[in-house]
Design a protein around this nucleic acid. Structure first.
Lengths: 173, 173
DNA sequence: ATTACTTCTTAAGGTATCTTAACTTTTATT
DNA sequence: AATAAAAGTTAAGATACCTTAAGAAGTAAT
């Protein structure tokens, strides 16, 4: 079985590509613009799992693999163009051609490394450290995204991020 | 290239199998006992990334893949027996046989799903909720592990876990 | 130009979680 | 059995981060 890029889609800022409860049958490769994935917690607050600017992939691998309702949302945070990739084969890697599988596993492995590093950061770094780390890891996103989205990604409120930025600008430790 | 299980090893509680700064050339499959992986932050505190009881794999995929010094430690939290799996092929999946690759990718994918869920939990659940979730997800570990290790895994201090347990036992909300 | 909306900041007061330290209980060692 | 070591609890005070609310500044829409 081949990986299928079924079509490209134009989505406007705010459009939702995957909702809580959906079963994910596509992942999205971003051709232009920026998507994000996020959860909404029981108090109604959003927590961003991933930003996906140009050339990034975003999807719900758990939902796609196990055909279970998604816990997350994916939407466009800028007007974007995306390619839709069918995830029908995710449950059974043996059905893929070897080249395809090599390619996919490499991506999945790299994503695993990234999420591992994020867990380390969430467990062992302060909010200020996580913000500084974010600005170093994603300098282009920092210039592009509203601070409240960055705050959501690093796990703090926008107000507190504002406070941290003030401290940093004053070189308060 | 085939996956190589080079040998099995007996390790005593406390023995370290991978240290910060090492380049990981093995992953470990636990045959009996329990391992853990963890980081030590700049203040000297440990944060547990993974418990690996019987039949689990633990390693540093970032170090193995990219031949870079590890950021983590792996040690035995019980007397254990482990099989050592060479990770020499991790940098180049194309060199693996397809069956091996299918098997490995499935494991990596499942690990990615698990780490994604942990990020969601760290971002969106309180310490109390994370503790309750842990007891549901790993009931056998809860009975086996000292509370301070569980506290470290869910990202809180042992003292605060004690307080949470007291609240839960009194049905304080 | 005016209005409305989103973003960002500031500040006061509150809460979750940590730090330190002491003490109790359990488990391991001699 | 006695001693030491590890695990678990409790409590007081501290701190990181949140909540609410208001205002300022920038951006989009009529």
């Amino acid at each position: 079985m081949e990986i299928q890029i079924s079509k490209t889609l134009k989505v406007s800022k705010g459009e939702i590509l995957l909702s809580y409860g959906d079963i994910a049958s596509y992942a999205f490769k971003v051709e232009s613009g920026c998507l994000r994935s996020y959860v909404i917690d029981k108090t109604g607050k959003e927590h961003i799992l991933q930003f996906a600017p140009k050339d990034w992939l975003v999807g719900d691998i758990d939902s796609s693999t196990n055909n279970k309702p998604s816990l997350i949302f994916i939407d466009a945070i800028e007007d974007s163009e995306v390619s839709c990739i069918s995830t029908a084969a995710f449950g059974d890697f043996a059905s893929l051609e070897k080249d395809t599988l090599v390619h996919m596993s490499t991506k999945i492995r790299n994503k695993l490394i990234a999420t591992n590093n994020r867990i380390i950061s969430l467990l062992s770094a302060s909010a200020k450290e996580r913000y500084i780390e974010f600005t170093k890891t994603y300098p282009t996103l920092v210039q592009r995204l509203p601070l409240k989205l960055i705050a959501s990604y690093i796990g703090i409120t926008p107000e507190y991020l504002s406070e941290l930025r003030r401290q940093l600008s004053k070189n308060i430790n």
